[in-house]
Design a protein around this nucleic acid. Sequence first.
DNA 1: AACTTCACG
DNA 2: ACGTACGTGAAGTTT
Length: 617
Amino acid sequence: MQEFRHTIAGDTITVHVPETADDLDAFREWLRQADARGPIAVDTETTGLDIYGPEFRLRTVQFGDAHDAWVILYERGGDFAECARDALQRCRSVLIHNAAYDWLVLDRCGVVPLESLVPRTTDTRILAALIDPRQPSEGGAGTALKPLSARWVDASAPDTQAGLHTVFRSLGVTKDAGWARIPATHPTYLLYAGLDVILTARLAPVLRVEMHRLGVRDALVPYEHEIARICAVMQRTGLLVDQEYAGPLARRLAEEAEQYGAVAARYGVTKIGSGEQVAAALVGMGETLTERTAAGALKTDKAVLLPLADLDRDWQRIGARTPNPLADAVLRAKRAAKWGTTYAQGFLSNLSPAGRIHPTISPLAARTGRMSVTDGLHQLPSSDHVIRRAILAEEGHVMISTDFQAIEMRVLAALADVRRMKEGFLSGGENFDIHMYTARLIKGDRATKRDRKVFKGAGFGKVYGGGVRTLARQTGASEAEIAHAVAAYDRVFPEIKRAAARWQRQAFQNGMTFVSATGRQLPLDRDRTYAVTNYACQSVARDVLGQAMIEMDSSGLLPYMRLPIHDEILASAPAREAREIAHEFERCMTFPLYGVPIVAEAEVGGRSWGSLYGADY
DNA sequence: AACTTCACG
DNA sequence: ACGTACGTGAAGTTT
């Protein structure tokens, strides 16, 4: 048996690494006793993060409590693998930091099914996110094990990941290769593997205490674990990519980017991504650039370039000026490059051997609790079907997309108790249009589609906290018109302003933290307290989706679910039952919220996601 | 690593 | 006192 000692928060802790059958017996004996005392912290070390990649392997499984850690060398196979599996099946209650990763690793490697481990798991990352959902860049501690341990357990606890990266470098391997290549006999590797479970074990009770001190609603803990399980299952399922389509598409877009890039080069722009070059060339051509970036450079983004190319927001000719050929070329080269690289090629680069993408679905990512998804799947162009066409439903299936209707406006009406909005939503029926309704309230029967657009902008301005200038730019209307619209908006829906002021006051009295209707702690930035309206609505809208996802699982729809997209669930279902299943999704997404009906509409498409955006297939 | 841009809800 | 668009992930360039 190898043993390592270390000091954590003044206590000497021990990391045990069994090497013989007797050593494994000692571990089993420890586990029997520890399991009777309380939860066991669990962690895994693997060859990398690409769980569904061809080379992926599980290397070690660690178990521990506050004082002892056991590193089981799973990759040795035989008794070691058997011992780890048996231990995982036996533990009554486990603590895991960022459980979804380890659930999927252990499931993928055939150690223990996700469905078996999930009901016994407490995820310390979920507890941490409920205490402070901010990322480090936003002034929060973040939810990584290192900063949390430093904050709550021991300020001098080693950064085990960074420490191992140093070891990898000294061994002459890259950061990525290190996890697969470092010998499992390396003392730092083993010590840090053990420390992670000890830190997790110590974190859990402290985070529990802090949760209670802050008054985080207890029910959020099991609720978030349910959602985490549902998201992990979707991640395991993944999405099918049409490789015969994506390959040629990636090549075609790369070619297009190259052609427009060559045009830009004629004007001295050798790198279309260089704002500095683009700005210099445009100024050299006699264009006047006025907008500046946060850091003071001249802005050359899409909003600046489109007018120079005489194009509107939909890339249609305006006819107001002679198009600047460089602005036009840069716009087109950038779009082709982005679509080709990030999306078409991205799908192919992230493919598993089975031809699927398994995006990481983070159920509690944003500070409002919103989910996030990797591999670009939350950002695919919606103005055109070409990119989404590359994502397929299963063989014999069709795509179903079910989305909430105007969810954030309904949540706003519910939370701020906006009388005339609620009346509209209650009496409006199936295809109620809140923005046209608002336009009619203010302008009567004279209201036009353009009025609708203006009041839609004013409505979003309320939820997001935008000002007249921004709203004017967004909607394309004049500032005077927007100013009138916002004033009229406040007259018909006076409750919104009052609620915003009330919420800011409550946050101020609660240490700059707003408590959402679902009991979430939402820290506000001192200099943008107006964001509270957005946080209140966005976070509850997220919980409305979370509740609906739990209802979908209870209704047997989880096997069809593929992706959550804020106000939408994308699903793949057998073509013959699609209508019926779509109706079930609608039912799961339909319920009242403080007297406001939340409603959803399902669209049944064809084989590809693009079919819901106009593609033939 | 910071900054900028671009894609979404 | 006033006014502020919110929340993400990925890629490329510059430092």
